[in-house]
Computed example of a mutant assay.
Amino acid sequence: MPTVRHQLSLNENFAPPLPGVREAIVHAADRVNLTLDAMSSGLTSAIAEHVGLDSSEVFVGPGSGALLQQFLATFAGGGEIVHAWPSFEMYPLLVRCAGAEPVAVPLRDDAHDLDAMADAVTDRTKIVLLCNPNNPTGTTFREDELRAFLSRLPSGVRVLIDEAYADFADPSAIADGIRLAAEDPRVSVVRTFSKSHGLLGLRVGYLVADEAVVTALTPGSYFFRVSTVAQDAALAALRAEGVMRKQCAEVAAERDRVHDGFTELGLDVPRSHGNFHWLRFGEANDDFVRLCDESGVQVRTLADGAGVRVTVGSAEANDLVLELTRRFLSGDRAGTARPDSA
């Protein structure tokens, strides 16, 4: 098997840990034998201050995936969950694990078709699940579009917005979900420290919602706790906001450079606001993945042959991806260097 030189299949953040994070982890290691802040009240308060809300409107959990599952398990009620497709591959599984039925609404122009999603709502719909920016397309919806969508929903339908990649997006191109959650009790927003804050290996996320939603979720937190080490690292990451913003801007600049490279090669690639790109080669998706693998670049196909998602990596990795794409499109798929054969 070829040696993996560039792991671009997991949407990891390749920037170094934020200032203070390593020191916080080392310090926390001396206290892992103690209970300390088992319910993350300190981290909850810090996040609430950071987003300008009360602590009663913030719920902390071990990553956004766990929070999504907790929310669905609490509020799905055996009904239907409307979501866009393609979107985060785990949505259908999470919905079914919550005892509900996923209702997938196809994208329009590679983005959420909010009108069609509103049309898909029935008296069985409990939740509409939105992903902004959408994974894998990287597309966004703006605040005016979201407000128009909310105006069409029945009062009893909840809206959960997954903003895992929001910090990489142009603020003018994306709805402020947290502001809408503060205004509308139907709206909840889930975010993660895994992407922009670089804490993927520690699993920390938070949900912003109406106090009644947080109260309903709280009993589950006894079984979905955030570790002492992860709490301290997240607190340090919050204090490094300026550096985090700078790193995200650097990722975005590299992302846009790579996008221009893809379009110059003739590919129709959506303008991404995440830290990844979505390539579509149809029946040749797997062939492209194999070509990348032969050069030590790991990318991945998505469910149902929807395309190939490629994380924005280092400049070296991204240049290699562009070169491999050029070869693939030109039919020159032989002679690819094999790192393990040197």
Rank of each mutant, 00 (worst) to 15 (best):
Q231N: 12
A100W: 08
F276P: 00
A28G: 12
Y91I: 10
A24L: 05
A29W: 11
F328W: 05
L93T: 14
P136W: 00
P92L: 07
G266N: 04
A249I: 01
L320C: 09
Y165S: 06
T74D: 04
R327L: 10
L129E: 10
G77N: 14
E250Q: 13
T263Q: 02
E250N: 09
G20H: 11
D287P: 11
A303N: 08
R147N: 06
S40G: 09
G61M: 04
S87F: 08
V310T: 10
N135V: 01
V105Q: 02
A48W: 01
L114Y: 11
G261A: 05
A337E: 11
A84D: 05
D293G: 12
L93A: 12
L202R: 06
R96D: 04
I127N: 05
F224N: 15
F149W: 11
L302G: 06
R22N: 12
G201S: 10
Q298L: 14
H50S: 09
R338I: 10
P219M: 05
M117W: 12
P86F: 08
L94G: 05
R290A: 14
G313H: 05
A116E: 14
L72R: 09
Y91S: 11
D123L: 06
E316A: 15
Q231F: 13
A284G: 03
G274H: 01
M1E: 07
P2K: 04
V208N: 02
H259G: 08
H273L: 00
G307C: 03
R338K: 15
S314G: 10
V310N: 01
W85Y: 11
G335T: 12
E211W: 03
K126F: 02
V60Q: 08
E294M: 12
T140Y: 02
I127C: 03
G198A: 14
Q7H: 11
D144S: 15
S196F: 07
D109V: 00
G65W: 00
H273G: 01
A98C: 01
A84T: 13
R271V: 07
G99P: 07
F281N: 01
D115L: 12
A175P: 06
T125A: 05
V251Q: 04
T215A: 15
R203Y: 09
P185F: 02
R147W: 04
D30P: 01
V251I: 14
G177R: 03
R326I: 01
D210P: 10
R158V: 02
